[in-house]
């Protein structure tokens, strides 16, 4: 096993150090580790190329002179191999470290850690003292998380079973566009293939493995697509006026667009997505809140409260 690793490292060094393309013959005669019959060497080399490609090392195929049909050769272009973020400062390294450390114990922990190792190898010391005391943390423990991020970068469709509002598992296939988190939930958005429309899914409602598939891969993601902005757009669909008791209904107070003092009560305006979940929120606060407008939602609310009474008398 060690010999294979040695050979892969030696091949990387040889292809990276050369300015000219190395032919297979040159590789086999100079890079240590290629042994056996011509056929064996050939097979070894093909596998090694695949392995390096899987590690993200790009091997270029080219020839010395485009005018002559030379035997093709191989090399690794340093600009395709090495990390290049331009000149980087200690503060930037500190910010990136904070970004990587936010993943501790969560889905992309391993990738964040290896990214951090590469950044630390640049040789610029992290200037952590220049930052205020912050310890942001990403909570992402869903098993499918990594599969989804990989699928987004590879433009691969994913399928999973999703708990519908009626709590039934439905099989969904989407072309994932983006993943984002807000209010302690993670969301993935993409084009639902069967519905041929944009849909957003909450990760904790996925109740199966996430299966990537090569079918229909290579789709386009709308440039600049912003998942949270599209959620926010929906969220601010309607406006309501609510009276809330002083010192109460903290959650609604925080979400208020405006607050006016009315003595014992405050009058706020607030936006809501759909009337039912807005009524849920109002009823959580019992008689500390009173919906003033819109009238249609007031009517719906009193009907719902009547239903609660009917269920419990």
């Amino acid at each position: 096993m060690s010999r294979k690793i040695e050979r892969l490292i030696n091949l990387t060094i040889a292809l990276l150090a050369t300015k000219r393309y190395l032919t297979k013959k040159q590789i086999f005669s100079s890079v240590e580790g290629y042994e056996g019959t011509a056929e064996t060497k050939e097979r070894m080399f093909e596998r090694d190329k695949d392995d390096l490609r899987n590690l993200g090392v790009v091997i270029e195929l080219g020839s010395f002179d485009p005018l002559f049909e030379d035997e093709a050769g191989y090399r690794i272009a340093p600009e395709g191999y090495a990390l290049d973020l331009g000149a980087i400062t200690g503060i930037e390294i500190a910010l990136l470290s904070l970004a990587a450390e936010a993943w501790k114990g969560a889905a992309l922990d391993r990738s964040a850690h290896s990214a951090l190792t590469k950044l630390r190898s640049i040789g610029v010391d992290s200037d952590l003292d220049a930052l205020p005391a912050l310890a942001p943390r990403l909570m992402a423990t869903h098993e499918g998380f990594q599969i989804i991020t990989t699928a987004i970068s590879k433009r691969e469709r994913i399928s999973f079973s999703y708990l519908s509002q009626s709590y039934e598992s439905e099989l969904r296939t989407i072309e994932p566009y983006a993943i984002a988190t807000k209010g302690s939930h993670w969301y993935v958005a993409g084009r639902d293939v069967a519905k041929s429309a944009l849909r957003t899914f909450r990760l904790d409602r996925i109740d199966s493995e996430v299966i990537p598939s090569k079918d229909g891969s290579g789709y386009e993601i709308p440039p600049g697509f912003d998942l949270l902005a599209s959620l926010d757009l929906e969220q601010s669909a309607h406006l309501a006026t609510v009276d809330i008791r002083k010192g109460k209904a903290q959650l609604m107070r925080n979400a208020a667009l405006s607050i006016a003092d009315k003595g014992e009560w405050d009058r706020i305006t607030i936006s809501y997505l759909d009337s039912r979940s807005f009524i849920d929120l109002l009823l959580w606060h019992g008689d500390d809140v009173l919906l003033i407008a819109p009238e249609s939602v007031r009517v719906e609310l009193t009907t719902r409260v009547g239903e609660i009474i009917d269920l419990h008398v």
Binding site: Y81, S111, A112, A115, I122
Partner: peptide, 12 residues
Amino acid sequence: PRMLTEEETIAL
């Protein structure tokens, strides 16, 4: 140092 992989970049 090697280039960041896509997954490393997404994490960052």
